[in-house]
């Protein structure tokens, strides 16, 4: 069943991505003031939203783990965090490339850039913390607590850094900006494609995690015998 889900969602994501790439590079014209480089926004913004969704999902699964003590939720947390971290990295890298072209600099300590980087550091810390703990239930428990702390910290970080001066453009899609309907459609479809991709990757990573756990338990059993 899950196998079919992975292939099915993967196929839909692939079709959507192909459609979006065609639209982004072949159909949509250059943007009036930025020219060619604005196209990066079709990946930059959806990647950020996907990463935020991943963070929200892992917070929920971490809380659920602490309530139910079912290790399945711990496996979901680690799978989704890894995928989310990859999307956040994609967001940071695409943003940096855009900044190099438009601002002339790779990086600036602007509010959004800084808060995205801090989020990245926090969730990378989560993965490192997991590696430092051997025993599965202790690892699940402690990393779930850390995940909750990280998720609570993220909005505070975002608020606090917002009061620092900001250089990042204001939101184009939702919140005051105006955008051509064709561009808007492509952006939304690409968001759907990236979210589907994140789900597929998480499911694959989840399967690895489950296999890993099964191997561990067989190994323990073999040692015991």
């Amino acid at each position: 069943m899950r196998e079919k889900l992975i292939y099915g969602l993967g196929a839909i994501a692939a079709v959507l991505l192909a459609r979006d790439l065609y639209s982004i590079f072949m159909q949509l014209p250059d943007e009036a003031s930025q020219g060619m480089i604005y196209r990066i926004i079709f990946f930059h913004v959806p990647a950020a939203i996907t990463a935020m969704l991943c963070a929200a999902v892992t917070c929920i699964t971490s809380v659920t783990y602490l309530l139910t003590r079912n290790l399945k939720f711990d496996a979901i947390s680690v799978a989704v965090t890894e995928v989310g971290l990859a999307f956040l990295a994609a967001n940071l890298v695409t943003g940096s490339i855009w900044g190099r072209i438009i601002w002339g600099i790779w990086w600036t300590w602007d509010a959004r850039l800084t808060s995205a980087l801090v989020c990245w550091l926090l969730y990378a810390g989560y993965l490192m913390l997991r590696r430092a703990i051997e025993e599965p239930t202790a690892r699940a428990r402690i990393s779930a607590v850390f995940n909750i702390f990280a998720f609570v910290d993220v909005p505070i970080v975002i608020f606090s850094i917002k009061w620092w001066r900001t250089q990042h453009p204001q939101p184009v899609f939702w919140g005051g900006g105006s955008i051509d309907p064709a561009m808007y459609l492509t952006a939304v479809l690409n968001l759907v494609a990236l979210i589907l991709l994140a789900v597929v990757l998480s499911l694959i990573r989840l399967r690895q995690e489950e296999v890993q756990r099964e191997i561990d338990s067989i190994r323990r059993y073999a040692h015991a015998v």
């Binding site: 550091l121 490192m128 913390l129």
Partner: peptide, 19 residues
């Protein structure tokens, strides 16, 4: 109770403390 405690703790504490 974790390995590399002296290394891990600051690594986790400082980003959390940023605000």
């Amino acid at each position: 109770n974790i390995r590399l405690r002296e290394l891990m703790a600051p690594l986790l504490v400082y980003p959390m403390l940023i605000p």
